[in-house]
Computed example of a mutant assay.
Amino acid sequence: MSLSVGSPAPDFDLPASTGKSLSLKDFHGKKLVIYFYPKDDTSGCTLEAQDFQKLLNDFHSAGITVIGVSPDSMKKHDKFCDKNNLTFPLLSDEEKVMLNAYGVWVEKSMYGRKYMGVERTTVLIDPNGKIAQIWPKVKVTGHAEEVLAAAKAL
Rank of each mutant, 00 (worst) to 15 (best):
V97T: 14
D72Q: 06
L47E: 12
L55V: 10
H77N: 15
L3M: 11
L154D: 01
T18M: 02
H28Q: 13
F80M: 11
G117M: 01
M98W: 07
T42F: 01
A150S: 14
E119H: 01
P136F: 03
D78Y: 09
C45W: 00
G68I: 12
L124K: 08
A132F: 09
D11N: 14
G103W: 13
W105R: 02
I131L: 09
K79N: 11
K20Q: 13
N85W: 00
F12C: 02
P127F: 13
K79S: 12
K54N: 14
G44W: 04
T122Y: 06
Q53L: 08
V5M: 06
A101V: 06
V104Q: 08
D78I: 14
M116W: 02
D82N: 13
T87M: 12
L91E: 07
S2L: 14
W135P: 03
D41Y: 01
K139D: 10
S43H: 07
I125T: 05
P89A: 11
G63L: 13
W135R: 05
F36C: 14
A132C: 01
L148Q: 10
T121R: 11
T46M: 11
T42E: 01
I134L: 07
K30G: 03
N128D: 15
K83G: 03
E146Y: 03
A62P: 03
K83C: 04
G6R: 10
F12W: 10
D126I: 01
L24I: 12
K114D: 00
A151C: 06
G142F: 12
I125M: 04
Q50Y: 02
L86F: 14
S73L: 08
S73A: 12
S7D: 12
Y35I: 12
S70A: 13
E145D: 10
S92C: 08
L32Y: 12
V97R: 15
G68S: 07
D82E: 15
P10I: 14
K114H: 07
E107F: 01
A132G: 05
F88G: 10
K139T: 09
H143S: 03
T65G: 02
S17A: 04
G29K: 05
M110A: 07
K137L: 05
K83Q: 08
E94R: 06
H77G: 05
D51K: 07
M1V: 10
R120W: 09
K130I: 01
K39M: 11
R120Q: 07
A149T: 15
K76R: 15
I134M: 06
K137P: 01
L148E: 04
V140K: 08
L32C: 08
G117T: 02
I67L: 15
G19I: 14
K114E: 00
P38V: 04
G29Y: 07
K152E: 04
L124P: 02
G103L: 11
G6A: 08
T18V: 09
L154K: 06
R113Y: 13
D82R: 15
N85P: 00
K83H: 08
V33T: 08
A9G: 06
E95V: 12
N57G: 15
N128A: 15
N128T: 14
K25C: 00
V140E: 03
